[in-house]
């Protein structure tokens, strides 16, 4: 019964919470800038508004373009089912699910890039080139971070790796490795969800965009699927990071649940702070940052090899 409730709660969280995170980020940024900022629930309003609108498709596009936002949303939601959002196991878990998790994110990206190329616009081509370059570095970084967690927990499932029932004694070496991994994962999170200093979600010039320009031609419900999809990705990767930072397997179960949502919102808040205090990196330096993330995770892994 408890597991059923937990699964239902996690699915609800996965479906309902994501649009709140961009709201928190924007509120934090507004607070830093001394503005009032958009309402906390602005993304929900945006999504509702977009759902009511019609769709405009480019005349050069094929089915790939209009299916891509839905496919990438579907794959990121499925990936979300593999990550434990609270102290209990994720709705779906099995040996080796971490690989499926990484590859589901890759599937979504594959279709998003294809959709951008489907429009035949040079701007979206630029976005595609950037996205595929950065993805080539952020994917190994994510994998190396997962390697650290596999090594620490000795298991091959995200659910057992991340939270519950693992009574791993965290010694100082493990803690150092986890700190390195947390930094690495945070960079991966910023890159995968297109936040500063890698990508500026508020930029207004197509030439400088990365993620925004990939979805430039989307409209109505398709754009809603894209926005919602990237919010879900933020939640899922945020949950991953949260588990590395906060061992949620202590104490009373409801206490842990109560820590989950504020924890996720806090991750969003930290992203907001980073966005407020940092300028955007030069485009050619982004791969360097991602390689640094790979190295951090790699060092974390090497620490554990002693």
């Amino acid at each position: 019964m408890n597991t059923l409730i937990s699964i239902a709660f996690q699915i609800l969280l996965l479906v309902l919470l994501p649009p709140l995170l961009p709201g928190v980020i924007n509120k934090t940024k507004a607070w830093f800038a001394g503005r009032v900022g958009p309402p906390l629930f602005q993304t929900y309003y945006d999504l509702l508004r977009l759902m009511r609108k019609g769709v405009v498709l480019s005349s050069t596009t094929t089915w790939v373009f209009s299916a891509a936002p839905l496919i990438s949303l579907a794959s990121v939601l499925l990936a979300g089912l593999l990550v434990p959002l609270g102290p209990t196991a994720a709705p779906v878990h099995f040996t080796g699910d971490l690989i499926l998790f990484a590859y589901l994110l890759a599937l979504g990206r594959f279709f998003t890039i294809l959709a951008a190329l489907d429009t035949g616009s040079s701007f979206e081509g630029m976005g595609a080139a950037r996205e595929l370059t950065f993805a080539s570095f952020s994917e190994p970084a994510l994998f190396l971070a997962l390697l650290v967690l596999v090594k620490l927990s000795g298991t091959l499932s995200l659910s057992t790796m991340l939270a519950p029932a693992t009574h791993v004694a965290i010694d100082s070496t493990a803690a150092a490795a986890l700190v390195l991994t947390a930094f690495g994962l945070f960079v991966v999170l910023l890159a995968e969800t297109s936040r500063l200093p890698i990508d500026d979600p508020n930029t207004h010039l197509e030439l400088t965009m990365i993620h925004e320009v990939l979805v430039l031609d989307n409209s109505g419900p398709l754009l809603a699927a894209q926005i919602y999809g990237s919010a879900v990705k933020l939640l899922v990767l945020g949950a991953l990071l949260l588990h590395v930072l906060l061992p949620l397997n202590q104490g009373w179960i409801w206490e842990n649940w109560a820590m989950t949502i504020p924890g996720l919102l806090a991750v969003a808040g930290v992203i907001g702070v980073v966005e407020s205090i940092m300028a955007r990196l030069q485009l050619r330096l982004v791969p360097t940052l991602l390689v640094a993330a790979c190295l951090l995770n790699g060092f974390g892994f090497l620490l554990l090899l002693r």
Binding site: G54, V56, L57, S59, G120, S121, S122, D217
Partner: peptide
């Protein structure tokens, strides 16, 4: 959907 040229 309506069909339009790609936004450039």
């Amino acid at each position: 959907a309506r069909t339009q040229p790609t936004w450039n």
